[in-house]
Design a protein around this nucleic acid. Structure first.
Lengths: 335, 335
DNA sequence: CTCAAAAATGGTTACGTATTCATTTTTTTA
DNA sequence: TAAAAAAATGAATACGTAACCATTTTTGAG
């Protein structure tokens, strides 16, 4: 069966109902200005013609699209599963739509181009580098935007966890369990998150009187291959570490995978600790010890809430750092 | 600092460059029709004025939005992590945008309303019931659409795995390991997926000479609470089963969680098997035995590929059932 | 050079809505 | 019942682009 598509416009409805297009518009948007009898006529016409208002035309004249652009990291990182869920659900509940992109190292440029053409009402993103030209472009554009889990050197428009403290707490937990030989695995330092967490790691070492230079640290990209490569290097270290501090739960969970794959036991052969306290870490098959938000809300939720505040002119500039605490589970133990 | 926002239009560029708006449009869309020297002039104006074409206006005149609407299930279900990733990345690579919704039992109506107003170029969804009015509405609308992992009674526009066979293979695997006392936990039968998989389960029982009526089956909603409730019922069964067949990996992984939470061991105390072979099942902390696609591609990828075929008029109606095979891992073992 | 053909450019309109301003109709008040 | 006020409606326009058709400019053949 084939359907011939009639694109019914408000003009068609107007003609059919014997009123002006203006009145049709009013019936839908400000019915209190229309006589009940007229409303009735128009509604009948709308139903009979199966009229559906055209969002695009409305956007053009009102200069707002009802679209929030979300630039997330890839979902194989469970952190972005949590944040994307929170963000999309919140935005939709507020009657807006979400344009989603999953950014990786290679596709960001093309995403940015697409994003700038789409006249979104606001942008929420987790792809910004510490020194990123995009920041200036977005500020120039005048579109409200917020970064979650990332910070720009300009120090505006962000929601993050206290990364330095998170790194410190994680490392301290490991040290307090008696581990002497530990190592760090994190991401590139152009990303504020990794920079801060590693700083916390170093601070904890210093405070325990350990010479930072003697402690191996692997700063790698966060895809599976590069983590695997780093893990193999760890295995060939002259002094095999008994604990691995990962900069994120995503990395930690992948380390877990690699350990088990090779027959190691966690925490017997290796302690593993992460940062972020993602939902997946709570699963009893994973039970990852980690550091995460004190608050119940996910970071994505906090960020999107703040973004709407900005859109509604309740705030102008968000600079928010959330405090963190330890979540001890089964991947760490006394040495 | 505050920025005054100048909304630069192609008219402004035209005036600035001393050409007509038509020519500006041509420079961007059909530069081969424009004299090189003119292109240069216009491009210079575009750069100096920081002009960005307005997607919305273009959509209005061209009657296509470049938007694909995705109605997915929630991401705490790892199946939708895989499919959403595949779909979003594919769509963006093709230069389209994705509007994402995460459907649950309660929010579907409001999602459908929003979706119909957004004049998306096509819709891909996994929320359709076997008897769903939405199907007719979408066909009437004339928008290309495809269902993945779900089928409507009209039997058109879908991509699914061979659910009956999947249920059969999973059950057969459990039976062939020597388990006598097994049970089924699946979702509501208004959903074709669950209906088919349970049918396969029953077929396997019959073929092994087992009376279906004697085998416990729990048909529940698929949120954590309801699965937990079902699991508690399983624990109180007069004859405690040694193997649990779950209709999806998502359910199986949650069962895994519940088992471990209560100190049971898998597969020692309970065998657990799922269907879907989601990425998470491959993690060595989970290592879920499951049934999934023979093909390497994810179901989401296959579906979105097909949807584009329809959009490009290469196909008119998709009816695709993909074959499946067993992926034996560590959650099942000889009785 | 001339003239026809081809290339390049411009003027105008449509897309479907909301909004502004003007006009008509109804209600209220004296 | 007349005049003023209020309510209801309509006509015209803007939003920013692409597309159609008309016009001007350039090119090339003779």
């Amino acid at each position: 069966m084939k359907w011939v598509v009639f694109l019914v416009s408000s003009k068609d409805v107007a003609k059919y109902a014997g009123v002006s297009q203006t009145t049709v518009s009013r019936v839908l948007n400000t019915p209190e200005l229309v006589k009940p009898k007229t409303i009735e006529k128009v509604m009948k016409a709308i139903e009979e013609l199966n009229y559906i208002p055209n969002d695009i035309a409305r956007s053009l004249v009102q200069k707002k699209t009802g679209i929030i652009t979300l630039i997330s990291g890839p979902l194989h990182n469970p952190f972005f599963v949590d944040t994307t869920t929170a963000i999309v659900n919140y935005v939709n509940a507020r009657g807006y739509k979400v344009n989603v992109y999953f950014g990786t190292e290679d596709n960001l440029d093309s995403i940015y181009n697409a994003v700038l053409e789409t006249k979104a009402d606001a942008i929420i993103l987790s792809s910004m580098l510490y020194e990123d030209d995009l920041f200036i472009k977005l500020e120039k554009l005048g579109i409200p935007f917020i970064m979650y889990n990332r910070k720009h050197q300009e120090n505006r428009h962000f929601v993050e966890i206290d990364n330095v403290k998170a790194g410190y707490i994680a490392t301290n937990h490991i040290l307090s369990l008696g581990h002497q030989d530990i190592c760090w695995i994190g991401g590139p330092h152009e990303i504020s998150t990794f920079y801060g967490r590693y700083k916390g790691f170093k601070n904890a070492l210093k405070d325990s009187g350990i010479d930072v230079k003697t402690v191996p640290a692997f700063l790698t990209n966060t895809n599976k291959n590069d983590i695997k490569r780093a893990f193999e290097e760890i295995l060939e270290l002259p002094k095999k570490p008994t604990a691995i501090c990962a900069a994120t739960d995503a990395i930690a969970i992948e380390i877990l995978n690699l350990c088990l794959e090779r027959g190691f036991q966690v925490p017997k052969d290796f302690n593993v600790i992460g940062i972020d306290n993602v939902e997946l870490s709570k699963h009893h098959s994973i039970a990852l010890t980690t550091v995460g938000l004190e608050s119940e809300k996910s970071l994505g939720f906090i960020a999107i809430e703040k973004l709407f505040e900005v859109m509604e002119k309740k705030s102008t500039c968000i600079q928010q750092t959330e405090s963190v605490k330890l979540f001890p589970r089964n991947t760490t133990s006394e040495k």
